[in-house]
């Protein structure tokens, strides 16, 4: 049997009175593209920090490629590349120097310089290789952070919200890059606020809330759990008839979204609108997405579009 890329057993983490992680069990197989979703404070970053050895669990253990993160921490860290969420950098060095130092910390010597240059090129940092980290734009710093996690060729890569605050073009570029890493055999664990991102990239998803995993399944299975569709109605100045309120998912500025459990409800909705003499200006039938699954599980209000 193949060793799992990440094996998390009954992890608890307590900060004073706060139970940040409350019994997490999770197995991520080698080669998987795995998504970790959840609102702020759900415990995603805490879990990543425990995996990376930056936090010690109050209880439980984690193994990276079969190496325990406490008893065999050196082998475990060799197998793991972490892209932190914050745009942190060392202001004394340029991109190439910083990457070579990072590779050196992992025991890599000058023979690794070719790989460092390859990573620099793949992430479009060649022009900035001699630029001080301090002088890079936010997007470039983000790329450098990703490069930093790759310099020692780790089989498992954890990206903690890699596309937070980056523009659409860079997001697409990073998606392509991360997909390629996964295709090349790297196991990818991605935390994200963007459900669209998880839906596009991840084969399997865990949803967290209050330090617990509330859903763990393939993305396809999670989506199939909510067969319902959404009906989006643009009514202009008119208000929604009260008979449709039980179906209402969200409503703002004359645009109402109704959650449908079966398609026959469309006819019911339209007849109620006719009865109330309300003209429909526009209408759309929308497939349920991960956000709907997420909201049904986590209970976050629909207006919080970018699930925090």
């Amino acid at each position: 049997m193949t060793i799992p890329a990440i094996q998390i057993n009954n992890i608890h983490k307590q900060f004073g009175d706060l139970q940040a992680l409350n019994g997490i069990d999770l197995t991520i197989n080698q080669g998987e593209f795995f998504g970790l979703l959840g609102p702020n404070g759900a415990g995603k970053s805490t879990l990543i920090n425990v995996m990376a050895g930056l936090l010690k669990p109050t209880q439980g253990n984690v193994a990276i490629m079969g190496h325990d993160t406490v008893n065999a921490y050196q082998a475990a860290r060799m197998a793991l590349g972490v892209v932190p969420q914050e745009l942190v950098f060392d202001p004394f060095f340029n991109v190439r120097e910083m990457l070579r130092f990072q590779a050196g910390y992992f025991g890599r010597g000058r023979e690794n310089d070719v790989w460092v240059d390859e990573v620099i090129e793949s992430l479009g940092l060649t022009d900035k290789a001699h630029t001080n980290m301090r002088k890079l734009s936010g997007g470039m710093k983000r790329r450098a952070l990703i490069a930093q996690a790759l310099v020692h060729k780790p089989p498992v890569i954890v990206l903690d919200e890699p596309t937070a605050g980056v523009d659409v073009e860079l997001r697409q570029m990073l998606w392509q890059f991360i997909k390629r890493l996964n295709k090349d055999g790297h196991t990818i664990i991605l935390t994200t606020h963007y459900l669209e991102e998880a839906e596009t990239l991840c084969e399997r998803v865990a949803m967290m809330k209050d330090g617990k995993i509330v859903a763990l399944d393939t993305t396809a299975n999670l989506l199939s759990k909510l067969p319902g569709k959404n009906l989006r109605l643009v009514l202009g100045e008119a208000t929604l008839p009260t008979t449709l309120f039980p179906m209402l998912k969200s409503g703002q500025n004359g645009v109402f979204t109704l959650a449908l459990t079966e398609l026959s409800q469309i006819e019911f909705a339209l007849s109620e609108l006719r009865k109330a003499n309300i003209a429909v200006q526009d209408m759309q039938l929308i497939e349920a997405d991960l956000e709907d699954v997420f909201m049904s599980l986590v209970g976050v209000h629909a207006n919080e579009k970018a699930i925090a």
Partner: peptide, 17 residues
Amino acid sequence: QSKIMGSIVFVLLTPIS
């Protein structure tokens, strides 16, 4: 400085004992 800037994490993530 590296604690305040957060860049200490780059050393803490490595196998350096």
